[in-house]
Design a protein around this nucleic acid. Structure first.
Lengths: 206, 206
DNA sequence: CCTAAAAGAGAACTGATAGAGAACAGGAGG
DNA sequence: CCTCCTGTTCTCTATCAGTTCTCTTTTAGG
């Protein structure tokens, strides 16, 4: 976005310290604490460096109310908002929602890639602890490793959530429900739409 | 309407004290008692902090009749950040974490009340789709309806996640694992610490 | 050697937080 | 009635943290 604001020696030093401090302590350091840690006696001088880092977008500008020097990354959750796209049931098209609601997802439940949410209908994955009504977080991907749980599109119409087993020329989809059988298709007939990376369930608030 | 919901250092300190006091004593503390506990000499100053906490919705506004500083029933956590408090395994104390990490939870996974997160160890609830390593969101509550899944504290030591069945004078805890049996205790021996309201699982990033 | 950028020291200012203490109101109880 | 307890409101300071400023020292490059 902006020009390459290369950091000076001291700026880099301060930024590194903040990164380290961030992982070790709950509260961001104050200017005075920074002075002591970095080894300088003047708040004023240090503040000049802080300003440079703020302009570089690495540090959150002070807000009056909140104290401490805090990195931009952890303060306002950037956007972990991912869309709730619809419902998925074994053997029917994904029931899309016209106006996707965004949900704020904790970091650990999503992957690096582009994700979306589907709500599960049916019990085909019940033995893996995926129940009717659960939300699943899907990473948009067209390939998967064997054994992963994928959203598979069959004949361009039916979408289903299953374990995948890819063999030469064919793809086998395994449910996690001993009352159901596996399904076998020519590779050309199945398209991987995404891979399961997270799951959520709400109790009682229906 | 809403102020910045971030508490100041002192406000947090006072709120923490009240939470702790709440679990140890029957009656809420008076302003003077609070002064002594927190370590300040002025009721007036302390009252300013109390007002801030009232505005944040964490403390009940005074009602004339009732004396004492009392917490709001089911006070909401400020924003949607709720703390990851530790691990829960059937039949051992909750393994607390010294520095609770906050997780940003989607609205649907939590309840109105004060919540926290535990990570499940073991397979005692596997048939309800609660697997080893899952995160569960617990609402702080001391009562439950029969059939709900609760965090139950047995003899003040062992914590466990089970279905609860309350009968006159006794409490039965049911696992969701057909290889395990139910456990039966006198009511006095079991304390409900919270009720399961949500659940999360991460695939593959482990 | 000279110059400009980077870094440091220190003083002064601003606003938010915090504490002390005085004064007031309203109920409980002797 | 008066007095204690408790919550409330108020003013006056003190302290802390971030900001801004000026002046000097160090460092790097031509």
């Amino acid at each position: 976005m902006n020009a390459e604001h290369s950091l000076t020696r001291r700026q880099q030093e301060i930024y590194d310290f903040l990164l380290q401090h961030d992982t070790n302590f709950a509260n961001p350091p104050t200017l005075d604490e920074l002075c002591q840690a970095i080894g300088t006696k003047s708040r004023g001088s240090l503040h000049k460096h802080i300003q440079a880092l703020v302009e570089a977008g690495l540090i959150q500008p002070a807000n009056g109310r909140q104290r401490g020097i805090r990195l931009t990354e952890n303060a306002p959750e950037p956007n972990n908002l991912i869309p709730m796209m619809g419902f998925i049931a074994a053997g029917s098209p994904i029931e899309a929602i016209e106006n996707p609601e965004m949900m704020d997802i904790p970091e650990v439940l999503k992957s690096q890639g582009s994700c979306y949410i589907l709500q599960v209908k049916g019990e085909s994955m019940i033995e893996d602890g995926i129940l009717d009504g659960d939300w699943v977080i899907i990473e948009r991907r067209s390939h998967a490793r064997n054994g992963e749980i994928v959203v598979a599109l069959i004949d361009g119409i039916d979408a289903t959530l299953k374990h995948i087993e890819q063999r030469p020329g064919e793809i086998i989809l395994h449910p996690a429900n001993s009352t159901m059988g596996s399904m076998r298709f020519p590779s050309t007939q199945v398209e991987i739409q995404g891979v399961l990376v997270g799951q959520m369930r709400s109790y009682g608030n229906s």
